[in-house]
Structure formats: C-alpha cells, structure tokens
C-alpha cells in the first residue's frame, strides 16, 4: 500500500511536470510534438549531443557528490560554487608554478591541488559550525561570493595573461590539460574521474568505518556523541571532503574545457549541484543519475530552443518545479491519508 502510494505520487509529479512543459510550449506558440522530438533529438540524436550531456554532467556529478557527503553528515553546503572556483584557481596556480611537468604527474597534481583548495574553502565554514555553532548556510553563501571576487582579482593581477587585454590567465601548459576521450567531441578525462569519484564515495560512505561514522553523525548527533564518536571532528572532516569533490569539479572545467582561468566559467554548477544531491537522495549512484538527468534536461532544452523556438530557460522552470514537487511529495501523501481517515470516521 505504502509502495503504491509512493509510486502514485511520483507518477503524479511526472504528469504535472509534463503538463507544465506542454503549457509552456503552447504559450510560446510552438508545436508540442515537434518540441518534444527536438528535445530528445538534441540528447540522443547525435554523438555530439550525447557527449555534451556527459560533459555538462561532469561538474554536476563531482560537485553533487561533494554536497551529498555534506548533507549526509548534516553539513548543509551551499558553497559548492565557491569551492569549484577554488579548484579552478588551484589547478591554474599549480600549472603556473610547475609548467614543465609531464601529464602523468601534472594531472594528478592538479586534481589533488583542486581537492585541497576546495576542501579548505569548505573546511573553514565547517570548522566554524563544528567549533562555534555558526550557521554554515550563510557562511558558505558568503564564501561563494568571496571566492568569485578573489578569482576576479587574480585574473586581473598575478594570474593575468600579459599578452591579452581581457581578464583571464594564459593557456595551461599541455601537461595539465585533460586528454579528450572521444575526439572531436568535448568529452574529457573529467567524466571518467567523476565516475571513479562516484565509486570512491560509495566505498567510503558505505564500506568504511569513517564513512559509517559520517553517516551516523548526520542521523543523530547526540547518539553519536554518546557512543564515543567525535562529532565535531567528523563534521569538519565531512566539510573537507564535501569541498574537495567540488574543487575537483572546478579542476575539470579548467583543465578539460576552457584550458585557462576566466571569470564566470561556472554557470551556477555549484547551486545546481545541491539540486543534484537532493534528487539523487545523497546516494552516489543516485547523484550520478541525477547529474546526467539535469544535464540532459539542459542539453535537450537548448536543442528545443534552436529547433522549436522554445526559450531554453524552460529547463530552469522544470528543474525548480521538480524539486518543489519532490519536496512537497511526502506531504501530498499524508494529505490524502488524512482525507481517508476523515472518511472512515
């Protein structure tokens, strides 16, 4: 019975979302079947389109994994965006310091640097929360803006390419650049790293003792404290991991896509990553699926814009609505349950 209700509520959400999409498409005067066709053709119609989904999913999965670790432990990390920026700054700085390294050393070094930089950027609010009880929600948002501005200062001063007037760094040395997996598409090593990270996070969280403790702390801090788990330490640890994975997402964007540090390279990946973690139910495989789903939604919408004239902003509407409906889902059920109770009385 409970299962049936859950299934029903999900079906209800799908129906609502689809009808919303139809209404939106009709409201711009586009043809509904043609729009849906172009949506799916954009995703599955060509190798390039499909590879774009994977390319867009890469930072979402990595940062989403990070956010999900934080959520599991009760560290509400809204700061993935800033941590992504620090990952990007770290890989660029490392490349500046050691330009001659061969790829075999340079790429792992860049990833580690990104992990550490992103991790530290999350660790500060994590420590402030664990040690002083200061809300991490506001602090991580502040840290996003601080990171974005620090990047802005860096690409105008020390990391600026002197040969160009625009605020951006010069091209990364070849050793640091992620190899492409499927030329001529943009699919790069970052996607494989995201998949490896997914498995790693699973093993860490479900097959290791520290991971078990991280999850227990998230479930019940008081009980963890009573059974001897140093709760504060684990919150700080989770913030470090959380930011670290988001940092790797930033490394991937710079070393795999742009090849140089520039402002605004992330169109809000860090914020979408929170949605990805939520939709993936903080489970690494779920996060990967959600990341792919959101990426497909965005790629499909772009194709719908090109071919059927439906504004691509429809993807943001759909994404926001899905989250709101999923949030309200469980109470929709209790709402019906209460109605039933009333009937019985």
């Amino acid at each position: 019975m409970e299962r049936l209700k859950t299934a029903l509520s999900y079906i209800l959400i799908v129906v609502i979302i689809l009808s919303l999409a139809v209404v939106l498409i009709l409201s711009v005067g586009s043809d509904v079947p043609k729009s849906f066709m172009s949506f799916f053709r954009g995703i599955f119609g060509s190798l390039y389109g499909f590879s774009e989904v994977l390319v867009r999913a890469t930072p979402l999965i990595l940062a989403g994994l990070g956010v999900s670790i934080g959520f599991r432990t009760g560290f509400i990390n809204i700061g993935a965006e800033g941590q992504i920026y620090w990952g990007a700054i770290a890989v660029t700085t490392t490349a500046y310091l050691f330009p001659g390294l061969p790829a075999l050393i340079a790429i792992p070094l860049g990833i580690v640097a990104g992990f550490v930089a992103g991790g530290i950027w999350a660790l500060i609010p994590g420590y402030l929360k664990a040690r002083f009880g200061i809300s991490e929600v506001i602090n991580t948002i502040m840290f996003n803006y601080i990171a974005i501005n620090i990047l802005g200062i860096l690409v105008r001063t020390v990391l600026k390419d002197p040969e160009y007037p625009l605020p951006m760094s010069s091209k990364l040395p070849n050793g640091f650049i992620f190899p492409l997996l499927m030329y001529p598409t943009r699919l790069h090593l970052g996607f494989l790293i995201a998949l490896i990270a997914m498995v790693l996070v699973y093993v860490l969280m479900w097959k290791s003792s520290p991971g078990y403790k991280l999850r227990v702390v998230g479930l019940n801090q008081r009980a963890s404290l009573c059974s001897g788990i140093p709760v504060k330490k684990y919150i700080v640890f989770s913030s470090l991991l959380s930011g670290g994975f988001a940092g790797i997402a930033g490394v991937g964007e710079i070393a795999g896509i742009h090849y140089k540090l520039l402002e605004g390279f992330s169109p809000g990946f860090g914020y979408v990553a929170i949605i990805v973690a939520l939709l993936g139910k903080n489970n690494p495989f779920g996060v990967a699926a959600a990341g792919l789903g959101i990426a497909a939604l965005q790629v499909g919408s772009l194709s719908m814009q090109r071919q059927a004239g439906v504004p691509a902003s429809i993807s943001w509407i759909i994404m926001g609505s899905i989250v709101l409906l999923i949030l309200a889902r469980s109470t929709l059920l209790t709402f019906f349950a209460e109605k039933e109770k009333e009937k019985k009385v």
């Binding site: 509400i76 979408v272 949605i275 429809i314 943001w316 989250v323 709101l324 949030l327």
Partner: peptide
C-alpha cells in the same frame, strides 16, 4: 527551508526570463 528557497530561485529565474 534552504532547499525550498534555492529551488524557488531556479524556478523564478527561469519563469521570469521565459
């Protein structure tokens, strides 16, 4: 409440530009 607020931000950015 944080997630709900965040989702609303996405929804309204999309809706207003649409």
């Amino acid at each position: 409440q944080t997630i709900a607020g965040l989702a609303l931000n996405f929804l309204i950015i999309g809706l207003t530009s649409f």
